[in-house]
Simulated assay, not measured.
Amino acid sequence: MGDWFGQDGYDIRFDWGPVGAQRLAPSAAALVVVDVLSFTTSVSVAVEAGTVVFPYAWRDATATAYAQRVGAELAVGRRAVSATAPWSLSPAALRSAPFTPRLVLPSPNGSAIAAAAAGAADPPVVVTCCLRNASAVGRWLAGQGFGRPDRPVAVIAAGERWPDDSLRPALEDLLGAGAIVASLATALAQDQAVLSPEAAAARGAFDAVADDVAAAVTGAASGRELVAYGFPDDVAIACRLDESDVVPVLDGEAFRPA
Rank of each mutant, 00 (worst) to 15 (best):
V126S: 05
A200K: 12
T218Q: 15
R79Y: 13
E73A: 15
Q192I: 00
S27T: 15
D212E: 07
W140K: 04
E198A: 15
T84Y: 01
A117P: 08
R161Q: 13
D3C: 11
V32P: 03
L31E: 00
L167E: 04
E172I: 02
L89E: 03
A97I: 10
C129P: 10
P101N: 06
A21I: 04
P108D: 08
V47F: 01
N109G: 02
A57N: 01
A97R: 06
P108N: 07
V32Q: 03
V33Q: 01
P169Y: 11
Y10T: 00
F5E: 14
D150V: 09
A185M: 00
L74N: 07
P101S: 13
P163M: 08
T128W: 11
A254P: 10
V81Y: 05
A75L: 08
W162H: 14
T84W: 08
W58N: 12
G138W: 06
L37Q: 09
T100A: 12
F146K: 08
L74E: 05
A214R: 14
G119M: 08
D165I: 00
A205I: 06
P163Y: 09
D191T: 11
S135G: 13
G20P: 08
P149R: 09
P18T: 11
A208Q: 14
Y56H: 15
V53E: 02
A61C: 01
G77F: 12
